[in-house]
Design a protein around this nucleic acid. Sequence first.
DNA 1: TATGGTTGTAATTAAAATGGTTACAGGTAA
DNA 2: TTACCTGTAACCATTTTAATTACAACCATA
Lengths: 147, 147
Amino acid sequence: MSISSRFAVGVHILTLIEFNKEGVSSSEYIAASVNTNPALIRKIVGMLKKAKLVEVHPGIAGAKLAKNLSEITLLDVYKAVDVVQDNELFNIHENSNPQCLVGRNIQDAIAPILATAQLALEKVLSGVTIEDIVQDIINKEEQNRER
Amino acid sequence: MSISSRFAVGVHILTLIEFNKEGVSSSEYIAASVNTNPALIRKIVGMLKKAKLVEVHPGIAGAKLAKNLSEITLLDVYKAVDVVQDNELFNIHENSNPQCLVGRNIQDAIAPILATAQLALEKVLSGVTIEDIVQDIINKEEQNRER
DNA sequence: TATGGTTGTAATTAAAATGGTTACAGGTAA
DNA sequence: TTACCTGTAACCATTTTAATTACAACCATA
Ligand code: FES
Ligand code: FES
């Protein structure tokens, strides 16, 4: 399996809010851009809000970034949108037979390794900020314009 | 989402074959141990076979390791059992709006980052072999016996 | 205060992935 | 021949996921 697209959409949303910082980023506006349903956007924005990455208020249109661009890492988003619950990226086979030497120990044997692997992944995400993404998009757009 | 339990079961199977190397590791035997269905085991063993990690032959009972214990890494298993197809651990939001500055660039902006993250995860897995797991289980079992 | 527009959220539906199961063809060995 | 095994395809049940609908709560303003 693969990691929920909520993560990509989350990054997406934050980046869009930045580019549209002079305007009003309502759920409808964002939805049109992301090409999906406003309610879905509100759901994800709600998660970002709970993680204190954006500010939104009931009844008032528009979401704003709650932190500086350079202070929001992809790991923040990753955790905010709950791609993995209970921090368990890997599924461990649950019902192994306790009668069996391997069965009763395999879980404890691989768990720390998987945790380490997961941590390595998260560390990479923590090294990239939304600012990097924004800058990257600006660069890409310029390159396209030159052609 | 989280990574298929096939990965854990794969490690499971290889480890069990090692511990049972004097005996015959038929799909039924393994299934009883892993606590699941023989057909499911055959399916996963088939994947391990395709990756040249085990040797099995139609009609002949039992699977054997095709390589030395220390030459089988968890990454080998990870790839063998196809936890991620097309090497895409992350889902990128597909339908973003090309009319939008962010939409038409976001994908290319985050893809390399995600690839890097994925690579970091895989690197950890490549540093652990089945031999490590086997040894770990022996140690754990001894510790339990001491109590 | 009435109105129009917005967020927040619960409930529902639809689609996809996963794990598990059954069934059987084809192979091996005694 | 017989008994047993692997390899697969087909199928089903369950769970997840995304998407959608619907509506209550809220705010700003005329
Ligand atoms: S229960 Fe997994 S090998 Fe015994
Ligand atoms: S922000 Fe994703 S399509 Fe514009």
